[in-house]
Design a protein around this nucleic acid. Sequence first.
DNA 1: GCATATTGTACGCACGCTGTACAAAGTCGC
DNA 2: GCGACTTTGTACAGCGTGCGTACAATATGC
Lengths: 408, 408
Amino acid sequence: MRKINTRDFHVATRSTSREINRRIALNVIHEHQPISRAELARRMKVTRGVAGVLVQELIDQDLIYEGATGEAAFGRKPTLLHIKSHDRLAVAVDVRFSKTYVMVCDFSGRQLAVESYDTIFSMPDFIRDLGQRIRRLAKAHGTKAGIEGVGVAVPGMVDQQTGRVLNAPALGWRDLELRKPLAVATGLPVEIENSGRACTLALLWLEHGETTRPQNFVYVSVSDGVGVGVVVNGELLRGADHIAGEFAHVPLNLEGPRCMCGAAGCWEAYISNLATLSRYFEWNLYKLSPNKLHGTKQGSFTVQDLIARARRGDAKAMAAIKSTGRFLGLGLATIINVINPECIYLDGEITAAWDLISKQVTSGLAERALTERVSRTPLRVGSTQEYPRLRGAAALIAAPTFAAPRVA
Amino acid sequence: MRKINTRDFHVATRSTSREINRRIALNVIHEHQPISRAELARRMKVTRGVAGVLVQELIDQDLIYEGATGEAAFGRKPTLLHIKSHDRLAVAVDVRFSKTYVMVCDFSGRQLAVESYDTIFSMPDFIRDLGQRIRRLAKAHGTKAGIEGVGVAVPGMVDQQTGRVLNAPALGWRDLELRKPLAVATGLPVEIENSGRACTLALLWLEHGETTRPQNFVYVSVSDGVGVGVVVNGELLRGADHIAGEFAHVPLNLEGPRCMCGAAGCWEAYISNLATLSRYFEWNLYKLSPNKLHGTKQGSFTVQDLIARARRGDAKAMAAIKSTGRFLGLGLATIINVINPECIYLDGEITAAWDLISKQVTSGLAERALTERVSRTPLRVGSTQEYPRLRGAAALIAAPTFAAPRVA
DNA sequence: GCATATTGTACGCACGCTGTACAAAGTCGC
DNA sequence: GCGACTTTGTACAGCGTGCGTACAATATGC
């Protein structure tokens, strides 16, 4: 039950019904393709006549196409419809501390080209260089429709609405314009988003296997930092200033280890890769200053290495990993109590050790979950496809085509 | 940008546009009453013709009525329209440990009758007794339209959808049917909800002063327990199992004081009235068993008394209150980082001491808020009207009349 | 070749928004 | 007092849209 916003509503016109139903049809086709007009009509519970009109309009808009004739036991054989995502292209950019990745892909997230290069930390230089790369890629791979937009995933807080990077500590970016100048440099629409939330959008919007995503879920990525995206009623939680969903810095203990955000005892400070390694090497994160933390993580020893040692019988490595698992579960309990999602998707280096830590995670989770039922919230681990961040950046461009129209 | 749920969507029919616009009109009238048809048309950006038709239908449905003729500098004088909430009645029930309150009120939340009595803890007896009371009240106060429903606010976790009380520790209710048997006993539709979330619904749906509520806010009530309601995009956050929003049991410190929920270090265990008093009387909550906690709060010394002592110069009382203020702020920071609301409404006994604790609250909040901007999220303190829980219970019945129709 | 079944399209009808015209009701200036 | 002007509220033709029915197209089975 939603209250109508009396300062920003959308009155229905005589074409509103059609817009709504056309969009529903597109989504039903997307989910059940290949599908015939008759089957679409049955699923939508409208007459075949209306379904036929909706389909024709979607074909005229180049959103779907008629494929092969299907098989049927009796009667006329159906003309099967498909989503036309293969010649609609986007550029996806993933900016990370070490490298920047650029991908050309179609609207289903299928990659056509990927390249990476050392990240440029000066924002003007970054934009100039990236603009040239994108222009070159657009020439090389652009179809007749061309590239429809650029999505950028940034590791930090961004204002998705204004296109500003608010604070990306890993890159040293603070309160910088990104969307507008990059749009000028490329001549394309640009959308930016926090990398964790971008991954969440990829889960929500892009093609995947047989299973369909729930309408209420949370995505958690554990890496150098902890990224979280929350989906409520099929919509990414953005909040008043577009920075909602920051579970990474919810405290587990106010007097806990220092975190890169400046506070102490954040969930991230217990489960990030750095935190896991520090447990093994007995670094005292309580005493380190925030900028010292940045330096520490540049070591060449990774969480993957730690997991390998644990598997080879290193008891101390095993203990460090299991401890991370327990704190991971304790933090997930908070997410579950607050958001009550249908399931949680987990990603990050530590998930490679899931067989070693799953017990600790679930017991930590059960310790603080408010009901027995929510303590059984399914955790889907490491099932994400390749380049989740890049796919998420692409989703920024692809999603508006499929989104529900704003009404009332 | 919301994704369409392909397993539960609502196709637009030829009457959908009218339904949408009629509901928008009702809400615009609700917010700007008294208002003329012409003014309504301007605000909705439709022609006066359509506005006239919408108004006529709302009059036919008995939702609005034509009032006095208004004043205008030039031209024909407008006929002013009003919401007809005064003869639409609901029964609101607030179940608390000590007393149960029953109110008859109209759809704007205006009370016609209130009575209270000692709470009956046996669920069958409770329902039998409450059913009789409601039947009697309905006879005494029912208009020709009669009472339209019963809303019940319960201090604990409820499944609003199935009408079951999952766990209300203060009442000793656990996994009990409430909605169905009460509906049978009264012959009326019944809705139940957690009391904190009910208060939130009252803020969202019922009439209030000049200011209109934002579409994104959080309500926090600090009393024996801590109740929280989250509103996102004008809709109460309910989650997959209808128990979302439980910020009360987010930890501030995993090794903190014991909480009634069974875990340790919950926010509630730091800021509930019991927690505040325990700081003054130096009760050791770390050692108490959960069921001992229930007994402790039955003392006759209240937080109000403590505030009075602080105002009279009792330094220890002042310290206890200020400490609660700091922990209140630290927990609010978590809410702000996760939900990023436009504002937070605060209620509860401790807000009577706001002048004493506001500094502690805001500094605690700033300590952990992720950006300077969100650390300035407005806190609206103690501005709620009388009987917030009862008004919230009434909102359960009144809200569907005004809610946005489900589309797409 | 005919009955049967299914797909896809065409058409009349009802419903709803759009724009224009016009009556109703009032103020202002002379 | 009376006409010019302004605003409110209603009426009506027009077009977009979904709904129900009818029918052609296409394929199977006997």
